[in-house]
Amino acid sequence: MTETGPIRMLLAKVGLDGHDRGVKVVARALRDAGMDVIYSGLHRTPEEVVTAAVQEDVDVLGVSLLSGTQLTVFPRIFALLGQYGAGDMIVVAGGVMPDEDVAAIKAMGVRAVLLQDTPPETIVTTLRRLVAERGAR
């Protein structure tokens, strides 16, 4: 990534979900893999998260969800990204959710869903691959 610099990533927690252990593990792993990581903090709204992602112009918006709200959160996030003209942003998800929800959010446009027990190296390689596939922007 020498041409374009480190991958920029926003890690976000949305709504009342207070589980932040996983997201902090991921933040450190990504930093140690050479990425620039911004963490939203807990209890953000989709509006706040998308505004931040657009201002920071991150390569990847990653949402960590352990609260079961994925089917309402992602439609909102994609709608807002569209309003900002930021449809090229890569969106990924992590946390805990049932298989049928994984399929549903992938159909909405979530590019990767990396749930509990995913080794950090897998997360790193997945993000690198997605950004490389996207190309220059």
């Binding site: 480190p6 930093r31 140690d32 893999a33 963490y39 709204t45």
Partner: peptide, 20 residues
């Protein structure tokens, strides 16, 4: 980080009341 070249950019989290 001088080791990985990566970073955790923590300023924004203190500005979350400005977020939207």
């Amino acid at each position: 980080s001088p080791y990985s070249g990566g970073s955790i950019l923590g300023d924004r989290i203190r500005m979350s009341e400005l977020a939207a």
